[in-house]
Design a binder for these strands. Structure first.
Lengths: 157, 157
DNA sequence: TAAGATTGACGGATCAATCTTG
DNA sequence: CAAGATTGATCCGTCAATCTTA
């Protein structure tokens, strides 16, 4: 379809089609792989991982729900549902916010800390091996440039 | 976390971290955007789109379920569930396979055909505008190379 | 009324179990 | 038993509605 020709639409040329199909295939397989590894190695999802990473980086291992949603680029309801599941599994807790009684803090538990410390090195190792070990510095730079260009274009859509 | 330094793990260097974070952000926003546009413009998901595209390209608009799952790189149960939903919405039908009575054909309906013909040009337009219009031919080539390298590495994991 | 957050309903994805035909 | 396919349970993500406090 990306290369058809029926109407006046401007389709993709051959190189662009090749790039687009490779990208789609790669991104699907890569995220599936990272998720699977994280799940089998550390019993968490990529989403759990991201939450734990951000909490670890935050002062006192605590963050407001909306702040977390903002940095992760998640809808607030997604954050709420996800945090509820993580709380059930003992990875985080909630604490009430005394200054603003509408708000809530998300707090990393001991167990959550243990899990992320175990998971992070293995995860980075996989990312390095699968993505970066065989890319030249020039390709790495280009990947950044391309991603940023696309992000820019998305902003102005 | 991708840049921490606690154990003997080899972490990512600054350029790699920058590239990885940009990529993750880009891929999340891009797929969200494409899905949202397809949903609001044509009332289908990206997954529906892919199914319809492959059926359109197939002889007689018909394909075996497992064949479809293979080209889309989906689990067979995902295919089954997804096709059931698409059938409920009238986009496809199932026909029994006379040669091998275990199997089933998935067939594009008139409505499915109408929908994909309406959706495709708009979708390609968005992809071109958001991804390709501002990339140099060199960057397009590099995107293909990077994607293929990562796919290769995934094969041998 | 708006901001911070949770809830419920529903479509989507995965896994294991199942059913039917080869 | 294996291959083609469906089903049910369960988890995830989105949307709209809701609840509470500012």
């Amino acid at each position: 379809v990306y290369g058809g020709d029926v109407t006046g639409t401007r389709w993709l040329d051959d190189d662009q089609q090749r790039a687009w199909r490779s990208y789609l295939r790669m991104q699907g397989k890569l995220s599936a792989h990272l998720n699977r590894r994280l799940q089998t190695d550390s019993d968490i999802s990529l989403a759990d991982f991201d939450v734990l990473v951000h909490l670890t980086d935050a002062e006192g291992g605590r963050m407001r729900v909306l702040e977390l949603a903002r940095v992760l680029d998640w809808e607030k309801s997604r954050a709420s549902h996800h945090l509820a599941r993580m709380q059930r599994r003992g990875l985080i807790t909630r604490e009430e916010c005394t200054e603003d009684k509408r708000g809530a803090f998300v707090v990393l538990t001991r167990e959550g800390q243990r899990v992320i410390e175990e998971a992070a090195p293995q995860h980075v190792e996989v990312v390095r091996r699968v993505v970066f070990d065989d890319l030249t510095p020039e390709q790495v730079e280009m990947l950044t440039a391309i991603s940023r260009q696309v992000l820019d274009n998305l902003e102005s859509e």
